[in-house]
Design a protein around this nucleic acid. Sequence first.
DNA 1: ATAATTTAATAAAACGGTTTAGTATTGATA
DNA 2: TATCAATACTAAACCGTTTTATTAAATTAT
Lengths: 336, 336
Amino acid sequence: MKEAKTVTIEDVANAAGVSKSTVSQFLNKRYEYMSKSTREKIEKVVEELQFQPNHFARNLKSRKTKMVGIIVANIRHVFSTEIIRIVEQSLQEQGIHVIICNADDNPEKEVAYINLLAARNVDGLIIFPTGANYSEYSRLIDNKIPVVFIDRKIEGILADTVMLDNEAASFLAVSTLVKSNRDRIAMLTLPLTNNLSPRLERIEGYKKALSFFKIDYREELVSACPLINIKEELTRLFESDIKPNGIIAGNDLILKEALSFLKEQKISIPDEVAIIGIDDVSYADIYHPALTTIAQPTKEMGLKAAEIILERIKENTQKVPVVYRFSPELKIRESC
Amino acid sequence: MKEAKTVTIEDVANAAGVSKSTVSQFLNKRYEYMSKSTREKIEKVVEELQFQPNHFARNLKSRKTKMVGIIVANIRHVFSTEIIRIVEQSLQEQGIHVIICNADDNPEKEVAYINLLAARNVDGLIIFPTGANYSEYSRLIDNKIPVVFIDRKIEGILADTVMLDNEAASFLAVSTLVKSNRDRIAMLTLPLTNNLSPRLERIEGYKKALSFFKIDYREELVSACPLINIKEELTRLFESDIKPNGIIAGNDLILKEALSFLKEQKISIPDEVAIIGIDDVSYADIYHPALTTIAQPTKEMGLKAAEIILERIKENTQKVPVVYRFSPELKIRESC
DNA sequence: ATAATTTAATAAAACGGTTTAGTATTGATA
DNA sequence: TATCAATACTAAACCGTTTTATTAAATTAT
């Protein structure tokens, strides 16, 4: 690999008594005009010499890297890592490699990664967008680089997108809380900067569900703030006269903050307040009480993302992009 | 990037009125015999044309890919993802990219990835080894490919290794339990197949600590079995006459199984049994009771791994490999 | 028998850089 | 004056593939 002088296509050609071109045809499985005997001869030599084509030489001409890049807004969400695992496995089976980059919710890092992966000629890109780089996203689309977005839809960008039916998720959450007789339901999400679609939609779904169940919407019960301020917000809510008896945590990180708050304040679940989280968490089953959550079908979503990117890479179709909305799954446990 | 006919080094050369070679020298920052004026001229043209060198053409001759591969035995351990995040960030700053591959504890997948990354000419490899591929590991070393192992030491392989002082971790665990007056301490780990160093060492440390504290070692209290059998083992232990009053969970996954068991059996922590986990877990603080854990200094370990691999890549030193042992950190919470 | 077509293979030109060996030019040294 | 060294640059080879254009031989059609 390094010292071991590499075996090249030329060595194979010499050993098999044919030309480089023929070997190349063989390597690319274009057997059309090749006699069975030469084909077998080359096959044998390749095996014997343990020849492995050089990816770089190959790419230089063919422009295919057999790599796709994944840029994830924040790798700390279990949702992200689960999807990544599925995609990675699924592409791996097709001989395609995955490069993972973590933008840490930082749009600048995201741009840097987009450029870097583009410069590395990845065959396609799977992005969990931060949402803040409209022009970069559209540049990718314009340049016909296969892209699929996950989790978030970007306003004005026409690209394949795999995401949760967020309104349905909120509706499920509200209805579950309503069934356990909660009528003052707080909704906690992260800030709505960049118009991040899931957050907006989850709030929208919450409102619609309330109206469906004929519960008055109260603005004070909705809070969109950074993670570090969640506890303050909860303090405010629990000290006010509309003390919530139900909480919807907009994602896994918020759920953790809320649980931490409830633990500190010794507020009992579900007696004093019921809680339900959007996004499943690893400790849901073992928590006291076990946590009712609304899970995203990560497996199906990951598989779909892999399928789309493969299709876009193979046939450079001009198919019109579609947004795939996956239904949430309610996992009833004990917290609600 | 795709349609947009790429700018090549030749375009730059023409625009700047110099030869390709000179531009190449410039790109590689070899300014020795270059006049200030040419240098500035090229600089300007590169900027204007937004020239980006083609990685593949570059590698073809220079054999540097500016990529390092990470092969992780099992990406579900939080320890792994944390380390990966640190390494990735740290290498990223040096303009080096990271390819992450997950072997899912499957030695065959690990071999496949090793070969694949070697074929892609990665500059170096960071491996959380499954432990079962001795000959492949030594082939890498023989071929002088920079490698650093994380978490596990492979018997007979001389390579830089970054790992926890596992004996110290067990000792800390035992001493913490002893301090809270526990004398029947169960030790749970995953199977000892492939002689995985951390598991062996953790058991070794457990034994030594017991003897230090003058507690008799009882084989029945030690269990090394697959995750799915942990609950059976615990059932056995709790039904026997040496019902443990303290548990050491050998890693994060085992801790979860143990907590699940204790929850199902309504065994109270820490009254009936104290528990301490090796590896920190995300929910340690919010659990009832908060979980006392022994954390690995992932940040320091990740930084060290990045530092070593960088050094090995840059200067192809013949420095003798060293095993770095990091001290565990006790995080006292409420479960013990 | 000759022309046209199909089959099987090849030589040579890319691809976009890096590297090696070399060439002027100038100034200093013997 | 001839020699040498340092400076500033370049031409051409090379890296290992893919691809295009071409050719030679074998087969079929006219």
